[in-house]
Design a binder for these strands. Structure first.
Length: 894
RNA sequence: GGGCUGGUAGAUCAGUCUGGGAGAUCGCCGCAUUGGCUAUGCGGAGGCCGCGGGUUCAAAUCCCGCCCAGUCCA
């Protein structure tokens, strides 16, 4: 497979030669006959720093514009960028990691036609794998823009392939003013996501600027199968081009120049640090360029190398470089956050929301290290200002972005504060914090060991903290071990029977008219208890909506499922039915209309929540049953009572407005173009044709469920409760139509029952309950007080009843009162060499002794009853009467 | 989705492992000292020990379920 011929027309035409790199052994193409190495780092070192390779300096905005315009001029249709939140349209990755991700899986699989062909896009992408390198290597970014021009070639529709791709790339670089001779095309091979193909890495002055991939194989196991759709997948590093056009030491200086300046201004580290000599930064960036940096260990190696090269003390170098690197990282991370929140990601303890939270916390830690006096929100605001020309949509989400950041910042500060007091308490009596404790602090309190170390330094006392280099690996391993135990659990998913032979897909009558209540159909197949018809009005379970129930020829339909467009009706009995029969089906209309109301209510509530809470609100799951329904939405705070009332009111207003609901089938591209990604509220929908449910002007979703035809049919929507099912996801539970009326009635029943018991009108309930509760508390106290007094009183009554037994004073009495009361009395009487045994009418017994008595009360008690306690006091149960006890005790004591 | 930690006075927490009379500090109130504030001393109020069930003679403590909060991992 890898013996692909990499020669293209351009190479012949211009006189490129194919060479083998002296250092890495890779083959490459160049116009420079003297060249011996491939041009990429680490074989060649950066030669553009201080020496820009383009004819002018490009800002980020200009570079995006130049890129798009160049390819538009050469026959490509520019398309809008996709969200960085890839889960808007696919469920296999969290974040958009490349421009091609926008076309996976449907377009790349050939199911859906690309909206334009060929096309060009400047796609913001996020990759967090190298996050610890950001700021330090001079070239790593968490958030970068991949310029991609793509062509999708079919047998009968060839757009272009290698020849033109390489030529376009070459021409684009020339247009920027990059010297022809400096450009090398390295032969390489790309594999990923089940696809593979040859590719070129395009290099100039030691930096890889673009990758040209030709996806033409499907990888199945170890074999390669040619694809019917061949895809040109290119990636131009827009920020890399900007960097090369500036020739600054790092990509950050070129892209985030003004933000870096602001950060320096608002930092409290000593001023002289920012006067760091440019050559130090250059040297570090250049050496970093020559290394493959993968972890913290590599970064330490880099530091040592730089120090050696500059003949500096490594600690001094670190003191000078670290603050700057932190600022670089802050500049990078805040841009990433602007995109994440701008595209509606909600912080959470799961998935992409967790990544956002991690990034915020990392950024806050960096800010803390260099003492940034701006808030995180203020920095992100600067980013938004910077980006507003290219991405005005991010600015639209500003309110949400800033508020969610404030909220997260608050949470983090709380965590750290809590952590501080925990650590302080922990080290009070210690010399050292053990690894076990460090892991515990990180795992369950969210305190990274570095933060623990800082806190310990602050409060001092010479407590030792040893952080192993592989700390995070240790944490991960610990989780691994636990997982293997859980894997024993196997999900017990219900399987449909597999028919032998082909079955025609079932005609779904409920899509043609959702209000048909009965129909006739022909039995195509009977397998076990399942019946398959040529057509049906029974809605099979799907899209969160429950299946219909009803009858087929008077036999009960107990379950309806769907697989591969075939509907399976499970009957209570298939006796007497045979294939080919015509049967009459009737659905339980009450059940169905409830489902329709609830499903439409779900769309309405989603729309209402988005309007009340913000555009970041997105459905993350739903469940529509006949009696009630629930909807999970992304939101970063608990929904307050006030907000809930507003959502409910708006939902009901939408109902009362009597808005028509239209369900139509639509081409996927058309739907996306017309309505945007918000149609995928219900999750990823397969296929090229989508069913679009449109509540005019309110909500549009791709949805296969059965719906009302007008919002009026939904009736009264009552939200029953909200629940936080995970961080960042709120669950709303609600009813519609008559069910709502019943719910309200039953709430009223509760109120009436309560007010009946108290004998007050409903509106006085809170006041009265509060009064009763307070009185109850007060009376409880009064009772305790009285018990104490009774104890005093009884003490005098019985204090004369002591008997001398052996060397002890013994008192055995049965008196009324609860354990507490008896305790109070005994406290008063059991002094010195006295022993008190008190009983009450419930069989409770208490033995108490004075300090001079040398008998264990527990042992004593167990001789006359059962129970336990302490040396000087024991309590338990005893059914004997006073005289018997006395007798027994005397025997023991004398 | 899974794991871990926590929920005790207005606040911060101890007590939970090993069941047996609910505690500390701060804050609050009162009194004393003062021209008044602060400081100090003495006294006091303040607890459905998250909710529900179980085990037990006995549960803040052990077991199960739920709610709430925090946190880590994929």
């Amino acid at each position: 497979m890898k013996n692909h011929n990499y020669n293209v027309e351009l190479f012949d035409k211009k006189g490129f030669v194919r060479k083998k790199c002296e250092k890495c052994g890779q083959y490459f193409w160049t116009l420079d006959l003297d060249r011996k190495t491939c041009g990429d780092s680490p074989c060649d070192k950066y030669s553009f720093i201080g020496n820009p390779i383009t004819k002018k300096k490009y800002s980020y905005k200009e570079m995006v514009k130049t890129f798009l315009e160049f390819f538009e001029k050469h026959g490509h249709a520019p398309i809008k960028r996709y969200p960085v939140n890839a889960r808007r349209w696919r469920s296999d990755i969290l974040l958009t990691i490349a421009s091609i991700a926008a076309f996976q899986p449907w377009v790349t699989k050939g199911v859906v036609e690309p909206i334009k062909n060929p096309l060009v896009v400047a796609q913001p992408c996020i990759r967090l794998n190298d996050i610890d390198n950001v700021g330090r290597t001079g070239r790593h970014l968490t958030c970068f823009t991949m310029g991609g021009h793509h062509a999708f070639n079919r047998e009968n529709n060839e757009i272009y392939w290698t020849d033109k791709t390489v030529e376009l790339c070459f021409d684009f670089m020339r247009e920027l003013g990059i010297e022809e001779k400096s450009i090398t095309f390295i032969e390489s091979w790309w594999e990923g996501g089940g696809n593979a193909g040859p590719c070129y890495e395009v290099i100039s002055h030691g930096v890889e600027l673009a990758t040209l991939v030709f996806m033409e194989y499907e990888k199945i196991g170890k074999d390669y199968k040619e694809m019917s759709l061949k895809i040109v997948d290119t990636g131009y590093g827009i920020e890399r081009f900007v960097w090369a056009s500036h020739g600054t030491s790092t990509v950050y200086d070129a892209v985030f120049g003004n933000i870096i300046e602001k950060l320096k201004e608002h930092s409290t580290v000593e001023g002289d640090i920012w006067n760091i000599e440019e050559r130090i930064i250059e040297e570090s960036a250049t050496l970093a360029g020559l290394m493959d940096i993968e972890n913290v260990g590599d970064l330490r190696i880099l530091r040592n190398k730089v120090a050696k090269k500059l003949n500096m003390d490594v600690n001094e170098l670190d003191r000078l470089l670290s603050p700057l690197e932190n600022i670089y990282a802050i500049a990078d991370h805040t841009r990433c956050l602007a995109f994440m929140f701008g595209d509606g990601i909600v912080p959470s303890n799961v998935k992409e929301g967790y990544l956002a939270r991690l990034l915020i916390r990392k950024t806050l830690r960096y800010m803390n290290k260099v003492g940034i006096t701006l808030s995180l929100g203020e920095i992100v605001e600067l980013q938004l200002e910077d980006l507003k020309d290219v991405y005005p949509d991010l600015l639209e989400m500003k309110d949400y972005t800033l508020d969610v950041i404030k909220e997260e910042e608050k949470k983090y500060i709380q965590t750290i504060d809590r952590g501080k007091s925990i650590v302080e308490r922990l080290i009070k009596s210690k010399r050292e914090i053990s690894l076990e404790e460090l892991i515990e602090l990180y795992d369950s309190k969210g305190l990274p060991p570095e933060v623990v170390e800082d806190i310990v330094k602050e409060v001092g006392k010479g407590v030792k903290v040893n952080i192993p280099d592989n700390f995070y690996t240790l944490v991960a391993e610990r989780h691994e071990n636990k997982k293997s135990e859980e894997e024993c659990y196997i999900e017990n998913k219900k399987e449909l029977p597999i028919p032998n032979g082909y079955i025609k897909k079932t005609q779904l009558l409920f899509y043609e008219n959702p209000k048909i209540k009965e129909f006739e159909g022909k039995i195509l197949k009977i397998i076990d208890d399942y019946v398959i018809l040529d057509r049906t009005i029974f809605y099979p379970e799907g899209g969160g909506q429950r299946y219909d129930i009803g009858t087929l020829n008077d036999r009960e339909v107990v379950e309806v499922q769907k697989r591969d467009d075939v509907v399976y009706h499970k009957l209570s009995s298939v006796k007497g039915l045979k294939e080919g029969d015509l049967v009459k089906g009737v659905i339980n209309w009450e059940h169905r209309i409830n489902l329709m109301r609830n499903h439409t209510a779900t769309h309405i509530i989603n729309a209402a929540a988005q309007r009340i809470l913000g555009k970041h609100v997105w459905q993350s799951g739903s469940n529509v049953e006949s009696d009630k329904a629930r909807l999970d939405i992304t939101h970063y705070k608990r929904i307050s009572r006030e907000e809930l009332k507003k959502i409910e009111e708006l939902a009901n207003k939408i109902v009362l407005d009597g808005i028509p609901i239209k369900s139509t089938f639509m081409d996927r591209n058309e739907a996306e173009q017309k309505y945007g990604f918000k149609i995928y509220q219900g999750g990823v929908v397969p296929g090229n044709i989508l069913r679009i449910v449109d509540i005019e002007g309110i909500d549009v979703e791709a949805c296969g469920g059965t719906h009302c035809e007008n919002t009026l049919e939904v009736g009264y929507i009552k939200i029953l409760k909200t629940e936080r099912i995970q961080d960042g996801v709120e669950r709303l539970e609600y009813t519609s139509g008559l069910n709502s009326v019943r719910e309200v009635s039953s709430m009223e029943d509760i109120l009436l029952a309560s007010s009946g018991i108290l004998g007050v009108p409903i509106e006085n309930l809170p006041k009265t309950v509060k009064r009763f509760f307070n009185e109850w508390k007060e009376q409880k106290k009064t009772i305790e007080e009285l018990q104490r007094k009774i104890g005093e009183y009884k003490k005098y009554q019985i204090s004369n009843n002591f008997e001398k037994v052996g060397k002890y004073n013994l008192l055995v009495e049965k008196i009324g009162g609860n354990p507490k009361e008896l305790m109070a009395i005994a406290d008063n009487l059991a002094k010195d060499n006295s022993m008190v045994v008190l009983l009450n009418s419930d069989g409770y017994i208490l033995c108490k002794r004075g300090d001079a008595v040398d008998i264990d009360m527990v042992t004593l008690l167990r001789k006359i009853g059962k129970g336990g306690g302490k040396n000087n006091m024991a309590q338990g149960k005893c059914t004997e009467d006073v005289d018997t006890i006395k007798k027994k005790l005397k025997e023991i004591l004398e």
